[in-house]
Amino acid sequence: MKKTVFVGALSAAAFSAGLAHAQTTLETVQNRGELICGSNTGQAGFGAPDANGVWQGFDVGFCRALAAAVLNDPNAVTFVPLTSQTRFSALASSEVDVLARNTTWTFVRDVDLNLTFVGTNYYDGQGFMVTRDLGVSSALELDGATVCIETGTTTELNLADYFRVNNMSYEPVPVDTAAEAQQQYLAGACDVYTTDVSALASSRAAFAEPGDHAILPEVISKEPLGPVVRHGDDQWADIVQWTLFALIAAEELGVTSANVEELKAGSNNPEINRLLGVEGGFGEMFGLDNEWAARAIAAVGNYGELFASTIGDQTPIGLARGLNAQWTQGGLLYAPPFR
């Protein structure tokens, strides 16, 4: 009897494992009633829990918009903190539905790791932070310096290339998380802390004396950061991708969290009508209802509002829009037409 039960359980497990693969990510998320979002281990402004334990930030906001679009509830998100080293395994093994965690879009990750980068939500580049009393004003003066670097990142490879190309030597101090890097840097165990400029600004804002630290002018790499999903589920990739485009297009079209309810009743701009589901029936094309984008915008605001409230120049992080302005403002943000 016991053996029969065991064999039965074994085959049931095998069967359900087979079933789980047959289900699309959208169905999995909807059945679960919750989105699982791979997040930073704690990067102020981008993704970190606040004093009440509620996750806040730019990447977090994107996950909330996605949850609002798919589940009609911006709070139906579980955030899983992932280090640079664990993030891709977590995504590949379906531990998370989407990864929104300052992840750089590269060829190998896109092609060889079988990930799908749906777009760029922050155009970044790698920079260097030093203490002002070091008296360094250019990255080219860093020959022989000790550099704190997060392992398993593209910045690690850029750093090696940059020092090699410029015929300089350095001593890497590898660390696992941004928090550890900051601790080592503040303790003086390294002269330089290098990572994406946005993360440097975010770290510096959290320091006791932000004025004592300078970010050097050199930006040594292109770091397009964006949300990532698994290869092979194009429907889910489309949903994540167009949620991002919806936020970007909303800013371009002047749709904000304040006026979205009003515009949802219908306006004389057909593109806004298609975006907000008044006409066109776009949401149904990928298995959602037609108000998905309106809900996403109502939840976190458009791209500009999200940027301003989490990392913009009015926040302690104080990042300028720069490359992340709309294409009409001289930036790189360019959502394909909702047509």
Partner: peptide, 15 residues
């Protein structure tokens, strides 16, 4: 563990 089991696995995705 840090070289082969850490950075290499992470950069190549060959867990």
């Amino acid at each position: 563990r840090s070289t082969l089991g850490g950075i290499t696995i992470n950069q190549t995705g060959r867990e």
